[in-house]
Structures are given as C-alpha cells and as structure tokens.
Design a protein around this nucleic acid. Structure first.
Length: 571
DNA sequence: GCCGTTTTCGGCCCGACTGTTTTCAGTCG
C-alpha cells in the first residue's frame, strides 16, 4: 500500500512538534508545518507524484530538501529525521504539547526539570504538587493542566447545519445588544469548510458597547475561557467554542480578512504587505502609522495589488499568485445550477410523490431533474426491480406530457454489486436517460478490489454518474479505501461523471477530491440526493464544496441547459 | 527550511489574553 498523504503530513507535524520542543529554529519548525498542510490538502497523492517523476519542490512551502525527504518517505515508509528526533526526545512529548495551555516551552521545562516523558508522568507530577515549583507555573496553571488531563482531548468538528443553527441563534443574540452594529461569522464557517471546529464571530460596535459581555451572558454558554476588551472566548453547552472579536468600523474589512483566514492565507498576505514596507493586521493595512486600507476587504486586497479572493479559496493553495495575476477562477454559483440529477421519490425511500418533486424543482427555477430511485438490492429502501422501474418510466412519460418548460429525466440509482456488475439488467438501464451508479455495500474491500469493482461498473455504457464516490459519512464513517486518481481517469476516459453529493452528512466528493477530478479532466454533477422537497435546498452545501474545489460552471454538467446535458450524457 | 517587486542571504505575520511576574513569557488563533 503506497504511503498516504495524511501519513506524510502526520510525520512532518510530529517532527515539527519535537523540533519545537527541542528549541530548534522556529522558522524551520514552521516550514515543516506548512509543508504538512500542503501535503494534507494536495489533490493528488505524493506517492503517485513521485512515481510520475513530478517535481515536488514546485509545491508551495516545499523546497529541495523537503522534496527529497518526501521522496525518501514514499520509498521507505520511514522518516529518518523523525526516528532520530524520537531517539533524542520521548515521542509522547508532542502529545503533551497538544494539551490546552501547554506549549513547547513548558513541555521542555517539564521534561528537563521533572522528567515528564508521558501523560501519566504529568498526572503524577500534578498530584505530587511539584508542578507549581517550576518557574512560570502557579496554582492556576496547575489547575488548568489538571482539568485538561481529566477530559479527553478530542478535536470534535461540527457539520455545517449544526454550526449554522448555533451561529444563527448566537448572531441574533449578539445583534440584540446595545451599540452593536455588524455581526458576522467568519473563520472556516465563512470559508465553507465541510466541518467547522469553532465559530469565529466578528462584531463592530460603537464606543462603550461591550459585545464580549453580551456573549458571556448568552444562555447557552457553558464556560468563559477568556474575556478581554477586544476578544472573548467561550464554550457553548454543545461543546462548540466561540471566539468573538470586536473592532472599530474603520477596521471591519481587515478584521474580516484576519478572522476569516485561513491562517496560511493571512500569512501570505502579510508577507506581501511586508514586501512593500507595509504592515497588515486585523486593524488595517498600515504605511507607518497611517492606515491606508481596512474598512472593506475589497480595499485591502486592492491596495495589495490583488483581486478579491473568494473566502472558499483562501487556503494558500495558489490563490494568492492567481489573484495577483488577475486570473482567479470564476467559481460556480447557485445561480448556475439548472437541474438536479440525483432525486428520490416515494417509489423508493423518498417521502414525496414524483409529481411533487418535479413541481418543487420547477419552483426552484430548474429546467430539469432526474428521478433516480434505488434499485432492488436496497430492500430497506424499497428499491425498484425492472417491472416497477418500467412502470415508473411510463409514469414519467405521462407527467412530462403535462409539464411545460420542465423535463423529468428517467433515471435510477443502481447498486454496484460486489463484483462490479449492476443490480439491474442492461435491457432496462438502456431505456433510461441517465444511470447513477453507487456503492452501498461491501465497504471493506481492499483498495485495489474496490477500485476495480467501481471501474468495472463504469465500463457499463449505460452508467452516467458515479454517486457519492467515497461513501464517507462525515464524522461517522470514513471513506472506503479506493484509488480515486484511477477512478477519475477511468471516468474521464469513459465519458462518465463524478457526483458531488450535496447532503451535508456526505459532501462526497470532498473539496480536494473535486479539485483532483477537475485536474484529471473529469466533470462533476452537483446533486442533492434529495429524499424530500426540503432536500433540494441542500444544493447550496454542494456548491460550497465545489467552489472550495475550484470548480467553474463549465466543470459542472448540471449547469448546462437540457439539450447540452443530453449530449454530455451520451457515451 | 523556504524563498525572491527586499534579497541566492537574511529575512520569515501579528496581536490578545492569561498567569505569572513586577515587566513579560507563553500560548493561542
């Protein structure tokens, strides 16, 4: 099994942690962290890049040295530097440094002075009361560490609908405060990541208003972690952390940029400001003491010589250079979508009748939908056998005869069986306008077997779209092992398309996979997999991820009018 | 360790808050 990007990134992160504890050059530490982020979010696997002889030092934050190290890791599965560091320092020190309130300096001090090599050692040190003897440690710090040790450090992330519900209630609460002007949710929420770790909320307020007090007084606050004049941090009962930042109106744009991130994007922008002898912070862009921009994001980007970067692209993955050249992609948007190509009805496990789903889609301004109920193997979903599917085809024909300016396409979500064959015969599949094929079983096949299984399904000339290609359920089920690069290439060669499933529990393909599909020349269908009328609204989540994957309208097949779409579906 | 409208060497983002200290280091985002 080739080395996965996540493994290389983890090795670099661990090395960075240990280097930092050792007191190594902080910029070297940062270089390893930056490289880890680059690798982690890379649309292609480093293993395949190495195999293809690509120049890794072209990647942002990766130079000659790290390119060589990555190549060595891909070859041996081992990272020599990390092994070496672990011989010098206990590997678990890195873990200790992830406890809130404990960083590299303190971990080093604990190790040097008290011989703390593990979390258990740390527990014993706290119990014995030796902690507070150390310089810089006091009773309060001891309590905080003790509390951190008591609860498991799970970096939980929240799905977007959950985050949205929390955020909207909180925004309403903050807007009710006297003197508060703007309230906006920034952070990864604004960048529309598929999950959100915390809520970053920016407010502008008139002098004298204290939005931090207002936040601390919110009903759903479980604890206040920090509360100063400019920043307040709380944890809500749900466990989600909220960081509130208050700035004057004149700093709104700069603060919004700062708080939207990503951190790496900000660092890149601040570097650009530096290069011109300016300084960029959350209060504005400064030439000496003079603020030369800051009221709006547009103003700051423009002054830096950049086009405004859409929040979804702010990940330091090449967008800054393109913004400088004025060549940012024209990202696909909700208004581009003309139809939905994965829709269920009460013929299988949907809740609404066919005509109702069609009417709802038409009311959304769509020109078409494809009805794609489950096939027979999915018995729990009352999947269709050839006889029922045939009757549904007839019903759709009758419905289409009555509809104006709207077309219901005949389709099915056919199961891909364990051997890659399909759950319905070609005789019925060939009567459909499109076939969505999906894996709903045997998630535990080997990577090679799963890949071959899916490609065999794509070999069937009736198949149009591969639904939720990795099978992941966010925070619930990992993607199954599969070689997506091979799948994308196979789809592209066969005239098949990849689904970006908009269900916020799935968002499958994920953003970076979408980008990889595009790189492979494959096009995408952004579909909702709606099981009810309300389900159509999920399209916006799919659009978010498509934008994060750098897709333009031309990369998405359901931005086409019906006639063009039909041409694309021929193979 | 990376990188170049400031550079192939010498820089590398910037500020808030806490807890400790008695002026600031460490951590965090």
């Amino acid at each position: 099994m080739p080395v996965q990007n996540a493994e290389v990134a983890a090795m670099f992160d661990q090395a960075a942690e240990l280097l930092e504890i050792k007191g190594d050059n902080p910029f070297r530490v940062r270089a390893y962290r930056r490289a880890a982020r680059t690798i982690e979010r890379l649309p292609r696997s480093v293993s395949s890049l190495v195999k293809a002889g690509e120049d890794l030092s072209e990647l942002p934050g990766i130079g000659e040295d790290l390119a060589g190290k990555i190549t060595a890791i891909v070859g041996s599965g081992k990272f020599d530097l990390l092994e070496q560091l672990k011989r010098q320092l206990p590997g678990e020190l890195g873990e200790i440094a992830t406890l809130p309130g404990l960083g590299p300096k303190r971990v080093k001090l604990l190790y040097d002075k008290l011989g703390v090599r593990s979390l258990d050692d740390l527990r014993r040190a706290v119990k014995s009361g030796r902690l507070r003897e150390l310089r810089g440690f006091g009773v309060k710090t001891e309590q905080n560490i003790s509390a951190a040790l008591a609860k498991p450090q799970t970096a939980k992330r929240y799905k977007l609908p959950v985050a949205e519900a929390e955020a909207e209630a909180l925004v309403a609460h903050l807007q009710g405060a006297k003197g508060v002007e703007r309230v906006v949710v920034a952070g990864s929420y604004r960048r529309r990541r598929d999950t959100v770790g915390d809520l970053d909320i920016l407010v502008t307020a008139r002098a004298g208003a204290d939005p931090g007090d207002r936040l601390a007084a919110y009903d759903n606050v479980a604890s206040v972690l920090a509360h100063g004049p400019a920043r307040t941090t709380v944890v809500l009962r749900s466990g989600i952390q909220v960081d509130l930042r208050a700035v004057p109106e004149a700093s709104y744009g700069a603060a919004l940029m700062y708080f939207t991130g990503s951190k790496a994007h900000n660092v890149a922008l601040r570097g650009l400001a530096n290069a011109r002898g300016w300084k960029l912070n959350e209060y504005g862009l400064f030439d000496g003491r003079e603020r030369i921009a800051g009221r709006t994001e547009e103003e700051v980007y423009k002054k830096l010589g950049l086009a405004v970067v859409p929040p979804e692209l702010r990940e330091d993955r090449g967008e800054v250079a393109l913004a400088k050249a004025g060549r940012l992609p024209e990202l696909v948007s909700l208004a581009d979508i003309r139809g939905d190509l994965h829709v269920h009805t009460d013929w299988s496990d949907g809740t609404a009748p066919l005509a109702e789903m069609a009417a709802a889609a038409k009311a959304r301004g769509y020109g078409y939908i494809a009805i794609t109920d489950h096939s027979r193997r999915v018995t729990v979903a009352h999947g269709l056998d050839p006889g029922r599917l045939s009757r549904q085809i007839d019903q759709i024909d009758r419905l289409n005869a009555k509809l104006e300016d709207f077309t219901v396409l005949k389709g099915v979500e056919v199961d891909i069986l364990a051997d890659g064959s399909l759950d319905l015969p070609d005789s019925i599949l060939s009567r459909l306008d499109l076939v969505v094929a999906a894996v709903h079983s045997k998630f535990d096949l080997s990577r090679m077997a799963q890949t071959e299984r899916i490609i065999r399904a794509l070999d069937n000339r009736n198949v149009s779209i591969l639904a939720h290609p990795t099978g992941r359920l966010i925070e619930e089920r990992e993607p199954y092992a599969v070689d997506l690069e091979k799948i994308f290439a196979a789809a592209q060669q066969r005239g098949c398309y990849l689904e970006l499933n908009s269900d916020p529990d799935r968002l499958d393909l994920a953003d970076i996979n979408v980008q990889a599909a595009k790189a492979a020349g494959a096009k995408v269908a952004i579909s909702t997999d709606a099981h009810s009328v309300a389900g159509f609204a999920n399209i916006r989540f799919g659009i978010d991820q498509a934008r994060r994957g750098w897709l333009e309208a031309a990369d998405v097949i359901n931005t086409r009018p019906l006639a063009k779409l039909k041409q694309l579906l021929k193979r």
